[in-house]
Design a protein around this nucleic acid. Structure first.
Length: 425
RNA sequence: GGAGAGAUGGCCGAGCGGCUGAAGGCGCGCCCCUGCUAAGGGCGUAUACGUUGAUAGCGUAUCGAGGGUUCGAAUCCCUCUCUCUCCGCCA
């Protein structure tokens, strides 16, 4: 949610900025609803004030032993008028909330302007893609040749976009998650956190997945439904929902390893082969709860922490800044980290690090007490993958494969693999 | 799943349908006093929205959530949610 004051007072300029994100705000409609709201609200409040005054008079008259009947008659219809006014006000407010809940965040001034991913800007590269003296296979071929990855078996169980793994690759997958978790906890100062994988609808609202992106979510048939988390960003960030955090608690750094569930609606035909895009995958997620004045420093730190994972794994990557048109709904600024995928001869997203500023905080009523003013103010929330486990596995299988079909285990993972150096048949 | 108890401000804890946004205590903040320490005294201490130049004042709302009764509800009625205890089941 945008700052309601800002939206109200600068509707035109906000609308202009939203256009860069490909969002058209109906200024006319918003403005008229807003003035209607203002009118109704002051009417209703005036009636309520009158009711309160008169009720007090009745009480006073009674305690003096007087008959309050004449006073009561004079306000006989007040209750009905208030109720009618409130009903109308609620209707207008609901309409306004629906509009506000649908508007994406505004981009930070440092974000490049552009309609699509063509306009993203590369920030830096790390490592050099390896020169193969044989034709590198993709991760599917590597995994299947090893007999440790089975897409058909998964399809039998769950249909498309799932995988089963076994033996060395299953252990490598687990080792990756453990390594990342340990790195962030031991070296980057995060608090390891275990969270529910099923959450309530209002939790998805808080981080911005609902109501707009319901189609992307899996949910249960309970009433209200539970939603399967699409990312640990959802439960981790909502840890501060509906609360006022003391300033000295900031920044809060949280890390969680969870499965993630996504319908991938609208991505039919994209990345249908292999583990790149699945309905279920694992991710180690980083969340920072930050003081507003420091959230951009935190974004740099969070991104650097995610990059460290790839550096330790010795996987080449680059960092790009997403342009206005390519950013997610809640983000004010996003760095994507892309890892080198030899079979595709390109960099593919393995982490997305965003500063959502106060956008999510307003939706979930997450505030901190500002020592300068003594008042509660929205805090800033950031999140980033640190990193996607499935895609990291893809990158290792492809980048670290050998001519004989085996895979060399990155050094930092060997302690997690019982000392194994190579995965082979 | 069955039976019972409960949900009030940062915490504890009062609260006869009317002057209670809410007694009292604790904690916290500022000030005073006491030559240190301990003790003592005074004042203050929720959030949102509206109005406004204003974090002043005023108005409105909020005592788990929603609905109802009433001129008026933290107080009465209904529904739901959550927490706790006991039983059952269970990774």
């Amino acid at each position: 949610m945008l700052d309601p004051q800002l939206l109200r007072q600068n509707t035109e300029s906000v609308a202009a900025q939203l256009l860069h994100r490909g969002y058209t705000l109906d200024v006319e409609q918003f403005t008229s609803l807003e003035s209607r709201r203002r009118e109704l609200q002051s009417d209703v409040e005036a009636l309520q004030a009158k009711r309160n005054t008169v009720s007090r008079e009745i009480g006073a008259a009674k305690s003096r032993g007087e008959d309050p009947q004449s006073i009561m008659d004079s306000v006989a219809d007040l209750g009905e008028r208030i109720k009618a006014g409130q009903a109308e006000l609620t209707e207008v407010q609901d309409a306004l909330h629906a509009i506000q809940a649908d508007i994406p965040n505004l981009a930070h001034e440092s974000v490049p302007e552009g309609p699509d991913e063509e306009h993203n800007v590369e920030v830096r590269r790390w490592g050099t893609p390896r020169e193969f003296d044989f034709e590198p296979r993709d991760h599917v071929d590597v995994g299947e040749a090893l007999g440790m990855m089975d897409y058909e078996a998964a399809a039998k169980l769950s249909g498309a976009r799932f995988v089963t793994m076994q033996d060395g690759i299953a252990r490598l997958h687990r080792a990756l998650a453990q390594f990342m978790l340990d790195l962030h906890v031991r070296e980057h100062g995060y608090t390891e956190t275990y969270v529910p994988f099923l959450v309530l609808p209002e939790i998805l609202f808080g981080t911005g997945q609902l109501p707009k992106f319901d189609d992307d979510q899996f949910s249960t048939r309970d009433d209200p439904p539970y939603y399967l988390v699409p990312t640990a960003e959802v439960p981790l960030t909502n840890l501060v929902a509906n609360s006022i955090v003391e300033a000295d608690q900031l920044p809060m750094l949280r890390v969680a390893h969870t499965p993630c569930f996504r319908r991938e609606a609208g991505s039919y035909g994209r990345d249908t082969r292999g583990m790149i895009r699945q309905h279920q995958f694992e991710k180690v997620e980083l969340v920072h709860i930050s003081h507003p004045d420091h959230s951009y420093e935190e974004l740099e730190r969070l991104t650097a922490n995610a990059e460290t994972v790839l550096q330790r794994l010795e996987l080449p990557y680059r960092v790009i800044t997403l342009c206005t048109g390519d950013m997610g709904f809640g983000a004010a600024k996003t760095y994507d980290i892309e890892v080198w995928v030899p079979s595709q001869k390109q960099y593919r997203e393995i982490s997305s690090c965003s500063n959502c500023e106060a956008f999510q905080a307003r939706r979930m009523k997450a505030r901190f007490r500002n020592p300068d003013t003594g008042r509660p103010e929205p805090l800033h929330t950031l999140n980033g993958s640190g990193v996607a486990v499935g895609r990291a596995l893809v990158a290792i299988l492809e980048n670290c494969q050998n001519a004989d079909g085996s895979v060399t285990v990155p050094e930092v993972l060997r302690p997690y693999m019982g000392g194994d150096i190579v995965i082979s048949r």
